[in-house]
Design a binder for these strands. Structure first.
Lengths: 145, 145
DNA sequence: TTATTAAATAAGAATAATTATCATTGCCGA
DNA sequence: TCGGCAATGATAATTATTCTTATTTAATAA
């Protein structure tokens, strides 16, 4: 409970910092992305929100999500499906993709990041300036959600 | 020229190996993916083919591309756009994504692959069996295509 | 070479995800 | 509290992709 309140305050401040109005829709959409923790699609978010906010418009959800991505409050997750998925996790992290289901999990590993940074410091890519490195690790989960 | 003939022979054999019929459409679509070397979309491929094969159907292109992906003759490239892109490069490789344009380049680095394999051999991910690791390296190209 | 047959294709309709339009609403600084 | 302007709702439009069905064609065997 406390953490939710805190998240909420931080979130309102972040919106204001970026010059974005704090609306109930924006709060609800952000909360939905947090609550739905398997990198939800716009559709997942719409379904989740429907119960408490039955008249948030579909277009609004897409627009708000775009705004968040532009303002780096959310990330779009790369997939090989033509459906967008969103990630509220802003730290530098990687993704585990299940090869059999749609499941995607975040994967953090500070040591690995260091190794990669070191490696590329010593092995620059010709004609390319790296801004960000992400791993897509495909495989099988042993447990089921 | 020679290499094209060779590619073609190998390609026809590959289709046969998989029990797929060799059709002019399939050959044209594969050649288009090879010719368009910036990880083309279905639309790019359709446009390219139109000049020489004006009556290949859109549905056919999508179906053939799917067939190729299923049979591992092409890979789908993960992007954060809701448009699929295809890659004829089958070796284990990574991708450089331009942060300002749609450009995507292949990136091969055997030494890096070894480092990653070693790392994950010694640092197994809990409840997850790795099948494949790909890097998405985002940044800026210094030269322009 | 020809006939057979299962697989592949063309054309266009259908669907799903997303974006655009625009009139109305409501957040927020003065 | 009020006014301006950004945000929203409702719905139409667009885009990428998939589906359907009749027709054609590549591969195989006689």
């Amino acid at each position: 409970m406390f953490s939710k309140i805190k998240m909420n305050l931080n979130f309102r401040d972040k919106l204001k910092e970026k010059g974005l109005k704090v609306t109930p829709q924006r709060v609800a959409i952000f909360e939905a992305v947090i609550a739905l923790d398997n990198h939800p699609t716009a559709d997942d978010i719409i379904a989740f929100i429907k119960t408490n906010h039955p008249n948030i418009s579909v277009g609004t959800v897409y627009k708000v999500l775009d705004t968040y991505v532009e303002n780096k409050l959310l990330y779009k997750v790369k997939t090989e499906k033509d459906i967008m998925r969103y990630d509220p996790h802003l730290d530098n992290h990687h993704h585990l993709y299940c090869s059999e289901t749609e499941r995607i999990e975040d994967f953090e590993d500070e040591k690995l990041n260091e190794i990669l940074n070191d490696y590329f410091k010593n092995h620059q890519i010709k004609n390319f300036k790296i801004q960000d490195i992400k791993l897509q690790i495909t495989g099988k989960f042993n447990n089921y959600k």
